[in-house]
Design a protein around this nucleic acid. Structure first.
Lengths: 241, 241
DNA sequence: TCCTATTTGTACGTATGTATA
DNA sequence: ATATACATACGTACAAATAGG
């Protein structure tokens, strides 16, 4: 079950294996995992090695450990943290998932309202990019993003190459950015959004309007993200902001 | 139109009047307010008095002032800020609304999951309180709240008297509290919730699970709030947390 | 209410490989 | 090349919480 001397720690392999089982619903949400002893026997390792693995999973919110009772699989929803450092790829990786970002459409437009959010003049040229985020091949969000077209001339190309907003920013000299604010509403999706999210039109979505800015707080990116409502939980944590 | 020498500043009266007009959709979302001069004439005051009034409204997000163009009504949704200091009554007051809190039901129960959130033993007695929050006579949210029944024996009575969670806490020696985390999902409402929110069952709601705690971060209150999805915007501001 | 089996939490100890100074 | 520090893995024992009789 585990491969020794591969450079990958045994506890990490076990953690990956369990995360995969949870994602595949072999351990469905709410169900109980085998006991530490049972897993230790199953993987042919010491109980402590299993403990290290499930400890990590608990840290990332995949499971919940209850002393004297057992370990249980948490809600299957993707937990999306909204804080100063909101990163899609990062969020997924912490939950043992692999993410994909694809550019669906892009254009240069003008829009007074969005320009205002970005602190630009009403006639400023805006770069519009519609992206689809996928986790484990399933669509998680469809987002419309707007940038200062003059400031980020190569953004779309960078985004398509790196499949990462952070990386595309980095190529334009922005090493770090923060979420300035997010505005969240629940609604029923438009037809095209429902299709892209592969969900029925009567299932609600979470719509998140957001403004990202540089470390000084100057706006960089205005975005409207739409998440499958029952597949995603937005987590606002006021402790470690 | 305005009453002088009432102890309420004229600009505040005008602000209230305009806010009332906006709430009543006499100025619908997106529409343009009369010019400052027109409003000054209408209220028979100086233009600066009007400016003071609409300045406040803009501050609270009800309207948006664009230099050289005019003032415009923002989205009609109730903007509910989620941050360390999340207070229902406070939120409403800032938007020029009057809030009401009514207790629908209360009971003493036990629940393992909720006890865990509150850091209590699995068998701990929990005080359950279902509240309905109203703004301007319209229901805004239905929330199920859970407290340590031993620690807050008189909570329901205090809540019914003061109609304020903050005040009820204060009567139990908790002068201040903070929002520790919030978890947000979109979904369709249960039948009873839809009825209480006076909305159709096919209109989505925002469900906010939240944990409030004392200043040291120790849990005090676990709550599940349900908001009319298109009537409420949850605002997460990372600047002033 | 008490007892017991189950299960997780903690604390020792030992050994080995790997990175660093 | 050597010494030191750290991460990993295994072993054992007992404490603490839970569930069921």
């Amino acid at each position: 079950m585990v491969e020794r001397d591969t450079g990958v720690a045994v506890w990490r392999q076990i953690g990956e294996s369990l995360a995969e089982d949870i994602r595949a619903r072999r351990y469905p949400p709410g169900s109980q995992l085998p006991t530490e002893m049972a897993l230790a026997t199953q993987y042919a390792v010491n109980r402590h090695t299993v403990r290290r693995a499930i400890g990590e999973l608990a840290q990332h919110g995949l499971i919940r450990i209850e002393r004297g009772r057992g370990t249980f699989v948490e809600s299957g929803a993707l937990r999306y943290a909204i804080g100063k450092r909101t990163r899609f790829t990062e969020t997924l990786r912490q939950q043992g998932m692999q993410g994909q970002t694809t550019v669906i459409a892009s254009a240069v437009i003008t829009d007074a309202t969005i320009s205002r959010h970005l602190g630009l003049s009403r006639q400023a040229k805006l770069l519009f990019v519609r992206m689809c985020r996928q986790a484990e091949k399933h669509p998680v969000s469809v987002s419309d993003n707007y940038f200062d077209a003059r400031r980020f001339p190569e953004f779309v190309e960078a985004l398509q190459e790196t499949a990462s907003v952070s990386a595309a920013f980095a190529l334009h000299g922005i090493d770090d950015y923060i979420r300035i604010w997010s505005r969240i509403t629940a609604r029923l999706p438009e037809a095209d959004i429902a299709r892209l999210l592969e969900q029925p039109k009567v299932r609600p979505i979470l719509q998140v309007e957001a403004l990202n800015g540089d470390m000084a707080g100057a706006p960089l990116q205005y975005a409207i993200g739409r998440f499958a409502g029952d597949g995603v939980e937005l987590m606002v944590n006021n402790e470690d902001v």
